[in-house]
Design a protein around this nucleic acid. Sequence first.
DNA 1: ACTCAAATTTGATCTGAGTCAATTGGCTTT
DNA 2: AAAGCCAATTGACTCAGATCAAATTTGAGT
Lengths: 237, 237
Amino acid sequence: MKPSVVTIEPSGHFCDDCAVRGAAVCSSLDAAELREFEHLGRRVHFDSGETVFSEEDITTSFYNVLEGVMRLYKLLPDGRRQIVGFALPGDFLGMNLSGRHNFSADAIGAVTVCQFAKAPFGRFIEDRPQLLRRINELAIRELSQARDHMVLLGRRSADEKVATFLLGWRERLVGRNGLSDTVPLPMSRQDIADYLGLTIETVSRTFTKLERHGVIEIIHGGISLLDPARAEALAAA
Amino acid sequence: MKPSVVTIEPSGHFCDDCAVRGAAVCSSLDAAELREFEHLGRRVHFDSGETVFSEEDITTSFYNVLEGVMRLYKLLPDGRRQIVGFALPGDFLGMNLSGRHNFSADAIGAVTVCQFAKAPFGRFIEDRPQLLRRINELAIRELSQARDHMVLLGRRSADEKVATFLLGWRERLVGRNGLSDTVPLPMSRQDIADYLGLTIETVSRTFTKLERHGVIEIIHGGISLLDPARAEALAAA
DNA sequence: ACTCAAATTTGATCTGAGTCAATTGGCTTT
DNA sequence: AAAGCCAATTGACTCAGATCAAATTTGAGT
């Protein structure tokens, strides 16, 4: 929540070495289009805890996450927070109908995004239906994830929520270095609680319980999944 | 849950008198396109309680709701149910990436849908980016609603959930006959409970409490909103 | 109107997760 | 290495909403 000091690099030919070129919205563009496209985007860096955009902000940009993790959340007037998702490299943010973002986004650790001004991006899309189709795909995938998360929030116990989260997070990180039993958790316990609709104490107690039962080991900056099968069983229940 | 006896009318010029022509996906089509489009769709009728499609079904069709209300839900292996939304006339269903529906849909009362076979619909979209843009709009709107619902499920009390639901449902029915304080509730208490992440008993008790406090009156087939301001206050809290 | 089944309401009790309150542990700064 | 700070853990207790168990009410079919 420090003042937002961002570093804006000059636009240029940086798609070439972009880590998410194949995964992100860009995957729908051919080489020539990509060359044109890269003039629209600028790499912007955010430090840990900085807010990339806020819920009621007028949407002026779209964002493609290049590096790092972000928390996406909504606040109630009295301060209660619900994290609606975590964004990882390759995720595309900023689509909306109202002209305002309908959630806020903070950097968890250092984050780099590819930022596109709304108007030129809109014009670029105009005559490129395959890019629109790609964006639509991403929206539909998110919608499916959102529905899964509703089931978790509305109908699962604390144990099930935590087990499901750990397995789901591990799965999302597969792109990194394959499926690993060492699962880094860059977000705080409070973030996890606000994502799962629990309190920080319940999350902590559940982690401890899972460790006592030999399902996980709590390690520095994450957990190690000792018994994936048992975790799956807990999550499915 | 009776066997699915559906009535399929012959395809023909029925878009002319379609109640949702202006609201649905069709709103992005001009007169000539609409004429071509109507040959793709068939009106299909479902009786109360019938299942229109199930979660793991291979997607063979898309649906445009014409009349009635549907519940959209997901089930856990042990039978717990989360309703992820209610569909009303004008809503478009069936989009997905996996090739399977990722939720189930039942008719609540009699329902009429406009059913499109997947392949011809896909071909029709192909060279009509404005229809794709319309579908994208609908997906983004749903995504926004889904996030709001996550906040409700994860962070709101039973009283807030019920008040928010009643106001939100009233709002969704504005298209019908304007904003009315008489709010029909075609779905059962169990449906409301499964939508709000509560039990049927808690929903019933909360209705009774709201009535005791003069906020609503429970009437046949719905409620009457006596004190909208107080309901708003409860929902905002 | 009469019967039966299902939906809803109401009551009594229980419990999973929340709340409140210390500790403990890990970093950072000096 | 001591001090200070914030995040995480642990413990004791509470409570909102779940569960269990009856009534009621509603509705469809005869």
